[in-house]
């Protein structure tokens, strides 16, 4: 009985030839699979997943009409067509916003007489905190309230500070993520002004 079972379990050597023929095919499959994986890894490792391409640059800036923080006449982006507009999203709870405050103040004092408009847009901030921040920081440019973050969402804001430069034709010329330096924004603004490089 046991001898017969053994004979049954020991089927044949017929598959040997087929197995030998299948070996190069299996090897080729493994080599191709490993090659594809290596190519995929090489492609993935060459990219920084944290870098998100600013998709809005070169496109029309999303329109908005927002009330000023603390009251006053609402400001509409469309009414500023023909001027360079710098839109800065900020919040009172954002430490980087305090870091860039002097650069923005310098920008405002240097370019406001050349027709450049600087607009702050408060991001996820209670009106009282925003107002208190504006008073303490001494910023003199208009800051706007953005209820429900509708404008921030239209501009694809992922955090603060973020700054957009809108060209006179209404297109977004540049987007800066994080605190800006005076030079960064001034260079862009100067290029967009009449007679700019």
């Amino acid at each position: 009985m046991s001898a017969r079972s053994a004979a049954e379990r020991h089927p044949s050597s017929l598959g040997g030839g087929a197995r030998r023929r299948a070996r190069p095919l299996a090897l080729a499959t493994v080599v191709v699979a490993v090659g594809l994986l290596a190519a995929l890894f090489a492609f993935g490792l060459g990219r920084n997943p944290d870098v998100v391409q600013p998709v809005l640059v070169g496109r029309a800036a999303p329109a908005f009409t927002l009330a000023r923080v603390g009251g006053g006449a609402p400001v509409s982006l469309s009414s500023l067509r023909g001027q360079v507009v710098v839109v800065n999203f900020w919040a009172s709870w954002c430490t980087d916003c305090r870091v860039e405050q002097p650069a923005l103040a310098s920008l405002w004092s240097s370019f406001r007489d050349r027709g450049v408009v600087l607009l702050g847009v408060s991001f996820q901030d209670p009106a009282s905190s925003a107002l208190e921040y504006l008073r303490s920081s001494g910023s003199s440019w208009p800051s706007l309230a953005d209820p429900g973050s509708r404008t921030a969402l239209a501009y694809g804001v992922t955090g603060v500070p973020e700054t957009f430069v809108v060209a006179p034709d209404g297109r977004i010329a540049a987007k800066f993520i994080g605190p800006v330096s005076y030079g960064q924004v001034a260079d862009t603004v100067t290029r967009l002004l009449p007679g700019g490089a």
Partner: peptide
Amino acid sequence: RRWLRGSTPRPASAGTSP
């Protein structure tokens, strides 16, 4: 396919199984 082929009885002349 390989499993099925391996389990079919082979002719007596070709192998060890009767």
